[in-house]
């Protein structure tokens, strides 16, 4: 009986998560996780969030079943000092896109539940202010230094 109850509760909880309405207006592309040196427990992930609707959309939280928790941060270099600032939300303007890219906005993935190396994948769930969500699969990749040489040309709207 206990087992059945537990199963029922679990399935209810699980369905609660999976049934959060999908956000149809947001398109997430190029989601990738930067492979980290061994034993490093904080990884960075990047993606492009495109808002196809005529209304601004607010990203409120991010989660991943493969990590203990996920935060959105912004890297800044001010007067030669590199710093990261945790962001509580991110506005994706109407008919526009926001790139999470090296040296700017990025996801901080804390404490992977298993070691991740190039080629592995992880699920990332983006939840928006209206409680809709978008789930993507991000692939772990090694950093490509050549890409950074062109980082100033990434904003193509």
């Amino acid at each position: 009986m206990h087992k059945i109850k537990r199963l029922l509760i679990t399935s209810l909880l699980f369905s609660g998560i999976t049934c959060a309405a999908e956000n149809k207006n947001i398109r997430i592309t190029d989601a990738w996780i930067s492979e980290a040196p061994p034993t490093i427990s904080t990884l960075a992930a990047y993606a492009t969030l495109q808002n196809k609707s005529g209304k601004a959309v607010m990203l409120r939280s991010i989660a991943s079943p493969e990590f203990a928790h996920v935060e959105l941060h912004l890297s800044k270099i001010v007067a030669d000092l590199a710093r990261m600032e945790k962001q509580d939300s991110l506005l994706i303007p109407a008919n526009d896109s926001v790139a999470l890219s090296p040296g700017g906005y990025h996801l901080m993935l804390f404490n992977p539940k298993r070691p991740l190396t190039a080629g592995d994948t992880a699920t990332i769930i983006f939840t928006f202010a209206d409680d809709t969500s978008k789930t993507v699969t991000a692939t772990v990749k090694k950093r490509n230094t050549q890409a950074h040489d062109h980082s100033h040309h990434q904003h193509q709207h």
Binding site: S34, A36, P37, I40, S41, T42, L43, A44, H73, S75, I77, A82, M84, P102, G103, H106, M108, L109, R143, T145, H148
Partner: peptide, 19 residues
Amino acid sequence: FGYTHCPDICPITMAVLAD
């Protein structure tokens, strides 16, 4: 100068330095 728990600026710089 950096720290290993830095997931963005430090590994970007280290990868560029390696190259």
